[in-house]
């Protein structure tokens, strides 16, 4: 019973800390969903590219963590720029399903090409991702907070604060909030909507890149399928928390982290995903707008 209480606490804390990576991925989905009502399925590519840019910066170039994460965000951001130019801009006047399918195509194409290139360079399923925080941690009684998980949560928190400042304290943020309500409002107020959307794609993708770095670092591994896995977790977090709401993405991501580990701990490993799905189902029945979603059309 003593161990059970300790392990329950430990598992919950691990879930919260690890869930912050899911939250970062979900924020990326949320920004684009909020502004465009498009599920950007290519978002996973930004996670994968961020992960590999981070891995290369750390293992090949030997750059420290804080530089690596900036590089990962820049690399992810570049992918976001491509998604905007290839999947969204040329198709912006088409039905909203069309750019969504384009992002699906982009995802498959880039992932398949990337896997081919990857397999050419590495004779491996995974490559090592140096983790400078491995072995570090803070002990509070019997509970151990993993160093790399603390760093993950800290980075995620910093990025969330930065995002809030951007949205609520800057001109770009004001423009995004107008566009999230209605593109015409932006147009009528003189906002260059296309440029703001490009900025949103860049921003969302940079967050994906950061998530990629953190996911790679905490697992000590980088693998070419990381993007696909992130898409599932990120979408799930977004819907669970409340589609299109940034607090929702954060709550959804953290909840998913806790939910996954707790259901492994309390019930069953093999039904972990099923239990998470069931929880989503129940949440959506009770609160169709998600845990933190608002009924008001507050989109970002």
């Amino acid at each position: 019973m003593y161990f059970f209480a300790i392990d329950l606490t430990q598992t919950t804390i691990d879930g919260l800390l690890f869930g912050s990576t899911y939250a970062l991925v979900a924020i990326g989905f949320t920004l684009i969903w909020g502004l465009l009502r498009i599920l950007n399925l290519a978002h996973g590519v930004t996670v994968m590219v961020g992960m590999f840019a981070g891995m290369l910066s750390a293992s090949v170039a030997g750059l420290p963590f804080y530089v690596g994460i900036v590089i990962a965000m820049a690399a992810g951001g570049f992918v976001g720029f491509l998604i905007d130019r290839i999947c969204y801009r040329p198709l912006r006047n088409a039905h909203e399903l069309v750019p969504m399918i384009a992002t699906l195509g982009f995802w498959i194409l880039i992932e398949e090409v990337f896997i081919k290139i990857y397999s050419h360079f590495w004779f491996r399923d995974y490559v090592a991702f140096p983790n400078p925080f491995d072995g570090m941690g803070i002990d509070i009684g019997q509970i151990r907070l993993r160093g790399d998980y603390i760093v993950t949560l800290a980075v995620a928190a910093l990025l969330v604060i930065a995002l809030y400042i951007l949205i609520y304290r800057t001109r770009l943020g004001l423009a995004m909030r107008m566009i999230a309500e209605d593109h015409d409002i932006g147009n009528l107020m003189g906002v260059p909507v296309g440029k703001v959307l490009t900025a949103a794609f860049l921003l969302s993708a940079a967050y994906g890149g950061a998530a990629g770095y953190l996911l790679g670092m905490t697992a000590n591994l980088a693998g070419p399928y990381a993007g696909s896995q992130a898409v599932v977790k990120g979408l799930f977090s977004m819907i669970l928390g409340g589609a299109g709401s940034i607090p929702g993405a954060i709550v959804g991501g953290l909840s998913l982290g806790v939910l996954e580990l707790l259901s492994s701990f309390l019930f069953s490993f093999s039904y972990r995903d099923a239990i998470a799905m069931l929880a989503l189902f129940v949440v959506l029945i009770v609160r169709p707008q998600g845990i933190a979603g608002k009924r008001l059309p507050d989109r970002i």
């Binding site: 399923d125 995974y126 996911l215 697992a219 000590n220 591994l221 693998g223 580990l261 701990f265 490993f269």
Partner: peptide, 29 residues
């Protein structure tokens, strides 16, 4: 990507003979 719960359970069970029926992708983590 996270194996903390599984490993903790194995540790709590005071496992001294561990059968790892799994492939390298998960084994390493």
């Amino acid at each position: 990507r996270d194996f903390s719960v599984q490993i903790r359970k194995l540790k709590r069970a005071e496992t001294d003979f561990f059968i790892l029926s799994s492939h390298l992708q998960a084994n390493v983590g």
